[in-house]
């Protein structure tokens, strides 16, 4: 009884504070913390370690935004969300941004009223099967039992793929990656399907990864990226350009090792200067400090470093850059210029 009344009083105070502030950027600054929606646990993308510290590819984006806005990479409140709750959490303002490998689709952008600020990982839905089945193409999967990790566009892609190839399947929807893996390994399903990055990450944790193969078919485009609410363009710009800053930093060779040197004084490359705030007023235009991008990049390095550290070939997950290489290296990662 007591605590509730007391909480009620806090709520009243919260209402007062909430009405006073306007944009998300001001909210975040006033709060001194960024509320960032992540998954409940997907190795490499977002998961708390044994000490409760969140780590991963998506987490790094959250931390970069927090560093850009607040100058403190640890000023992030990570809000675990499920596929069911993520959109309402964002729409209702519980979180300021969502970085939860969410696919950019038409209806999410237009109907659900969200703004995808960019793509931080180009993915596609793939299949994993045990080698002993001798399956070499997804088109051979007629009548197979398929474990699907629910909560993203996987169910729809799967249904479309099997329908367009006129073959049958038996879906087993599963909530978490760990449970899907358990069932797949026990042979309760023949095939496990989710984003190809997730499959690689899952296979990496198997006792005998060599006994399983990823089928060549990638049946969907899954551009994953952070998103914010429609209508708050100022905040959308902050998140978009923080992501772009990470990408540009890789392109221009700015790394966590050399950033302190480069930012100490204006150098020879004007774009680096503009990016790091030694020249021009880009930070001010965003409503941030001049060294916003420097702070963001200093947290865990540029896009390439973040990739390598969390999901790259040196990690157990071992993903190759592939589509996610810089455009200069034949990939799709491309940032508009800082000008």
């Amino acid at each position: 009884m007591k605590k509730s009344v007391f909480f009620g009083a806090l709520t009243v105070a919260g209402v007062a504070a909430g009405v006073a502030a306007a944009g998300t950027l001001d909210d975040v600054k006033a709060r001194g913390k960024l509320n960032c929606g992540v998954t409940t646990g997907l190795v490499g993308f977002a998961a708390p370690d044994a000490n409760g510290e969140w780590n991963g590819f998506d987490v790094a984006v959250c931390r970069a935004v927090a560093a850009a806005v607040l100058g403190d990479a640890s000023a992030v409140e990570f809000v675990p969300t499920t596929g069911k709750t993520r959109f309402t959490a964002l729409a209702s303002g519980e979180i300021d941004m969502l970085a939860r490998n969410t696919t950019w689709t038409f209806s999410r952008d237009v109907d659900l009223k969200f703004t995808f600020v960019g793509v931080n990982y180009y993915d596609g839905q793939g299949f994993m099967v045990p080698k002993e089945l001798g399956v070499s193409s997804a088109k051979d999967l007629d009548g197979a039992t398929v474990c699907i990790q629910t909560g993203t566009t996987t169910e729809l892609n799967l249904a479309d793929f099997f329908r367009s190839n006129n073959i049958n399947y038996e879906p087993v929807p599963i909530e978490t990656n760990a449970e899907a893996q358990q069932q797949y390994l026990a042979g309760a399903c023949d095939v496990y399907t989710t984003d190809a990055s997730g499959l690689a990450a899952t296979r990496a944790t198997f006792e005998a990864p060599g006994d399983h193969v990823l089928l060549p078919e990638i049946i969907s485009k899954e551009p994953l990226g952070p998103l914010v609410r429609h209508g708050d363009n100022e905040w959308g710009d902050v998140v978009r350009w923080t992501l772009n800053a990470l990408i540009t930093a890789e392109e221009l060779g700015v790394t966590s090792a050399n950033i302190a040197d480069m930012a100490s004084a204006a150098g020879g490359n004007p774009e680096i200067n503009r990016l790091l705030g030694t020249e021009g007023t880009l930070g001010e235009m965003l409503g941030l400090s001049a060294d916003w991008a420097k702070n963001a990049i200093a947290v865990s390095g540029n896009y390439g470093e973040i990739f390598e550290k969390n999901i790259g070939e040196s990690t157990p997950i071992g993903l190759a850059r592939g589509l996610n290489a810089q455009w200069t290296d034949g990939g799709l990662i491309y940032s508009p210029p800082f000008r």
């Binding site: 409940t40 044994a50 358990q182």
Partner: peptide
């Protein structure tokens, strides 16, 4: 745990079973 809170069951189903260290300990 179903609504993504990490109570005892949520902690088991979420972070612990998802980690590479303890994947498969049920």
């Amino acid at each position: 745990s179903v609504i993504s809170m990490f109570d005892l069951v949520g902690m088991i189903r979420g972070p612990i079973l998802a980690s590479t260290d303890w994947n498969g300990v049920y």
